[in-house]
Simulated assay, not measured.
Amino acid sequence: MTNPLQRRPHQDGRHTPNLWPVWLVATGALLLVGAAAFGLYHGAELLLSSESTVKKPVGVQDVIKTTVTVLTLIGAVLAALYAYRKQLLDEGTSHRADATQLTERYTKAAEQLGHDQAAVRLAGVYAMARLADDWPEQRQVCVDVLCAYLRMPYETDSTALAFRHGEREVRLTIIRIIRDHLQDPTAATTWCERNLDFTGATFDGGDFSRSNFSGDRVSFRRSTFSGGEVDFSRSRFCGGEVDFNSSAFSGAEVDFYGSTYSGGQVSFGDSTYSGGQVDFSRSRFAGGRVSFRRSTFSGGEVDFSSSTYSGCTVSFEDLFVQADAAIRWGPFPAIPVAQP
């Protein structure tokens, strides 16, 4: 059961100001003014009587005049409180209007993202990203929508029936916008600490270079890197969990050159490398756990040369390496792998 004497519970975001009920405030104000008037009347009478040098009774008019003066001051204070309350209510109305406008912007941007024309979808991408910057309370939701777009089925073969003209540009734009928001963790509009879910997405290009992945969870699980160049060079994986498990590197050039792994857990376990090039050269493994456990190397080239390992656990257990796979281990000690 709700207690009528309690204020409404606090709500995050834009909401009506947290005020006491009107009937309670009005009753309390009347009781307070009545008590003050009663006390002031008798107090003023005693004060004027004590200051009288003629030893004659103080006139009722003097007492009333003093009481009215003080009550006028109290009225002014109450009027100021009323004005302040009205201002808070007006601000609440403004906040609700602002929230309504943000919701309408979200709905419009989501509709644009589902449009048949690539140009309209591009406009929806920029609108959703701008909304994420303007709406901190729902920033994660906006980021989730952009990530969900990349998880949608994507046909890269231009001769296939499901191929959509302009779709690649839309997807590359989303990746670039996400990258831009992962550059500076101290920026007011940063997405560095946001969860990013690319589970099952298909990448045939994209620039994540110099990104800071520091959210609780970043998932590229079961993703496919099938062509083009996907750039993670000089990125930082520092905290939380980054999941590349069961991903397929099947023809793309995926660049992790100079990346840093300094905390949390990064897993490439159960992944397959069947073509293209994956470059981990000059990477720095300096904390946390990194796993390539049970990965399969059946073609292409994977480069770990000139990487450094200190204060971390890196697992290359149960690898399966075929003869046509080229792996450069660099200074890392010999690693036993299962031969076909």
Score class of each variant (00 low, 15 high):
118 A>P: 04
58 V>W: 06
6 Q>W: 04
112 Q>H: 09
289 R>V: 14
266 V>M: 02
334 A>H: 08
270 D>K: 07
269 G>P: 00
13 G>I: 11
257 Y>E: 09
107 T>C: 00
299 G>K: 09
107 T>M: 01
65 K>W: 10
150 L>E: 05
83 A>C: 06
183 Q>H: 08
79 A>W: 08
182 L>M: 13
340 P>E: 13
250 S>L: 03
111 E>T: 12
182 L>C: 07
229 E>W: 07
180 D>E: 14
93 T>V: 14
338 A>E: 12
108 K>S: 14
334 A>I: 09
244 F>I: 10
222 R>T: 15
175 I>V: 15
216 D>E: 15
59 G>N: 05
12 D>Q: 14
32 L>P: 00
71 L>A: 10
160 A>E: 03
78 L>Y: 09
274 S>H: 03
292 F>H: 03
235 S>R: 03
104 E>P: 00
328 R>C: 01
65 K>A: 14
217 R>E: 13
167 E>M: 02
171 R>G: 01
286 A>G: 08
126 Y>L: 07
105 R>V: 09
141 V>M: 10
307 S>H: 09
320 F>H: 13
309 Y>I: 12
53 T>C: 06
15 H>N: 12
129 A>I: 05
102 L>M: 11
190 T>W: 01
133 D>R: 12
117 Q>Y: 06
132 A>S: 10
34 G>W: 12
263 G>I: 10
200 G>N: 12
199 T>G: 05
204 D>T: 11
269 G>I: 00
34 G>E: 06
125 V>M: 09
141 V>D: 13
155 E>D: 15
333 P>G: 04
325 A>M: 07
329 W>Q: 14
218 V>R: 08
315 S>D: 15
75 G>T: 13
171 R>T: 08
178 I>G: 00
124 G>T: 12
66 T>F: 13
65 K>P: 00
99 A>W: 04
225 F>E: 03
189 T>F: 02
171 R>Y: 04
261 Y>E: 04
318 D>H: 15
102 L>P: 03
82 Y>C: 14
66 T>V: 13
140 Q>T: 11
307 S>N: 08
8 R>W: 01
297 F>T: 04
152 M>P: 00
195 N>L: 04
15 H>M: 06
221 R>M: 11
185 P>M: 07
298 S>V: 12
307 S>Q: 07
110 A>Q: 14
78 L>P: 02
282 R>C: 05
7 R>M: 14
143 V>E: 02
81 L>C: 14
175 I>C: 04
105 R>D: 13
113 L>W: 10
268 F>N: 05
311 G>L: 13
323 A>G: 02
134 D>C: 01
221 R>V: 09
71 L>P: 10
158 S>W: 04
48 L>P: 01
125 V>A: 08
62 D>M: 12
